[in-house]
């Protein structure tokens, strides 16, 4: 994966992460590390926006498996938005979506998370 961008949203306890490109090699570990750093700092509402993410393979799936696990351990709430069918299929197959709230877009995810208080 080339890179990703992160923005911390107004509610302050929410972080939105946008992975870009291909999540298919060890470079994508940075995504998992970033999530963990936020969780560790107490920002436990994590939104991952998939609109700029391309293809995902098993290595990428491993990264997301790790993110889900860490969010569970920190008692956080993970939301996925703007997923394409290819992403959803893979995540469903792997049992990842079971632990995640999936929203059409970022706005819906944010209003859900703000509602959590």
């Amino acid at each position: 994966m080339n890179n990703f961008s992160i923005s911390v949203k107004p509610a302050n306890d929410i972080v939105v992460i946008m992975p870009k490109g291909y999540v298919n090699d060890l470079g994508a570990e940075r995504l998992e590390q970033a999530c963990e750093q936020f969780l560790d700092k107490g920002i436990k509402k994590v939104v991952i926006n998939f609109s700029d993410m391309q293809f995902i393979n098993s290595i990428g799936a491993s990264i997301f498996t790790g993110i889900v696990q860490k969010t569970l351990e920190y008692n956080g709430q993970l939301c996925f938005t703007n997923m394409r069918k290819v992403h959803r299929d893979v995540f469903e197959m792997l049992g990842i979506t079971k632990h995640v709230k999936v929203f059409k877009d970022e706005r819906n995810a944010l209003s859900f998370l703000k509602g959590l208080g």
Binding site: I59, A61, T65, L94
Partner: peptide, 19 residues
């Protein structure tokens, strides 16, 4: 090391094993 790590990631990704 990277090679072995990557292969481990393939396994963990295929079977959704976080650890």
């Amino acid at each position: 090391n990277d090679k072995m790590k990557t292969t481990l990631y393939v396994v963990t990704g295929m079977f959704s094993v976080p650890k």
